[in-house]
């Protein structure tokens, strides 16, 4: 039944595609005629496109390659726009008047690399994000492609992460473009593929743990004595964008550990203000708390490591 439904849907889609409008005419004068109005001092300047890889005529696959209509390669046949001196709209507009799927289809017509394989049906695709929401295709250096400037593009929508990266325990992603102390050494795309992926949260790898192992390969094991939540999902205990607690933990130890562990004696004891300075220096609260002894929380490979102390 599912298969029949999919076939019916596909047939509907094929029928819908047949009703496409006839193509309009190209001006045949791009890009020079376009830059007459969209030059450095014109409205909506686009002259810097000539400094981007998109404009290289030597590459036959670019919009500026021979026969690809230059500006009109992306903006559609725009003879009417040119002849009317801008009174008529160009053939294709990358703005809110055009459906995001249609805008993106223009880009995906050429950009079919592996990294975009999961774009259809991905989170950003479903949310109506367009390529030009993030990419500045007319700029010589697209900010979203540079490690230092990329986070500022992502933070335009991901405001919680922007705040989290200013916590004391965080990954080194650039949080301010002007302060040297906020220098970024990683980009969002070190972990995420914004074009879609097979993993959760648009991660580049299939699972959260596989993503973390890319930089924290030592945690991969497999260990003799595994810690079940660590084996399954690092974010059971860690919050990777930033935390107020050491090592990007979601909560303080020992209470974080006690959210799962209530064995007799010290694992289930109540630790509170009576156990810390100036009242006391309880060994299960100060220093590394539980990890003062149970150091192998990611798993132990020692034959006597069942308590994750070896």
């Amino acid at each position: 039944m599912l298969l029949a439904g999919l076939l019916a849907l596909t047939a509907t889609c094929l029928a819908a595609d047949e009703g496409a409008a006839p193509p309009a005419e190209y001006s045949g004068m791009a890009p020079k005629i376009c830059l007459n109005c969209h030059g450095e001092k014109g409205a909506l300047p686009a002259h810097e496109i000539l400094m981007t890889p998109m404009a290289l005529t030597g590459d036959p696959n670019t919009p500026f390659g021979e026969g690809n209509h230059a500006c009109e390669g992306c903006h559609g046949p725009s003879k009417a726009h040119v002849m009317s001196m801008g009174r008529e709209a160009p053939g294709f507009l990358f703005d809110e008047t055009t459906a995001s799927e249609d805008q993106n289809a223009i880009c995906l017509d050429c950009h079919q690399q592996e990294t975009r394989f999961h774009w259809p049906g991905s989170t950003h695709n479903i949310e109506g994000v367009t390529c030009v929401s993030c990419h500045s295709v007319h700029q010589p250096d697209d900010p979203v492609l540079a490690l230092e400037t990329q986070p500022q593009v992502c933070f335009q929508c991901h405001k919680e992460q922007r705040a989290q990266f200013l916590r004391q325990s965080r990954h080194p992603v650039q949080t301010s473009s002007n302060a040297y102390s906020h220098t970024g050494l990683l980009a969002c795309t070190d972990c995420h593929n914004p074009h879609g992926s097979d993993g959760p949260g648009l991660l580049r790898r299939n699972t959260i743990n596989e993503q973390c192992y890319d930089c924290h390969a030592e945690k991969r094991g497999p260990y003799l004595w595994e810690h079940q939540p660590a084996r399954e999902d690092c974010t059971n205990c860690h919050t990777p964008h930033g935390s107020n607690h050491p090592n990007m933990l979601v909560a303080r130890s020992p209470w974080l550990c006690q959210q799962c562990h209530a064995a007799p004696f010290h694992p289930s004891s109540a630790y509170s203000g009576v156990d810390v300075p100036p009242n006391d220096f309880d060994q299960r609260v100060v220093g590394k708390a539980c990890m003062n002894c149970h150091n192998q929380v990611h798993g132990s490979n020692h034959p006597s490591g069942i308590r994750l102390t070896r």
Binding site: Q168, V276, P277, F281, V285, V286, G287
Partner: peptide, 19 residues
């Protein structure tokens, strides 16, 4: 920053853990 697990806790503060 203030942290009750670190501040004013000498290396030999806890009886059974050398920090």
């Amino acid at each position: 920053t203030s942290d009750f697990a670190l501040d004013d806790v000498p290396v030999d503060g806890p009886s059974n853990v050398l920090l």
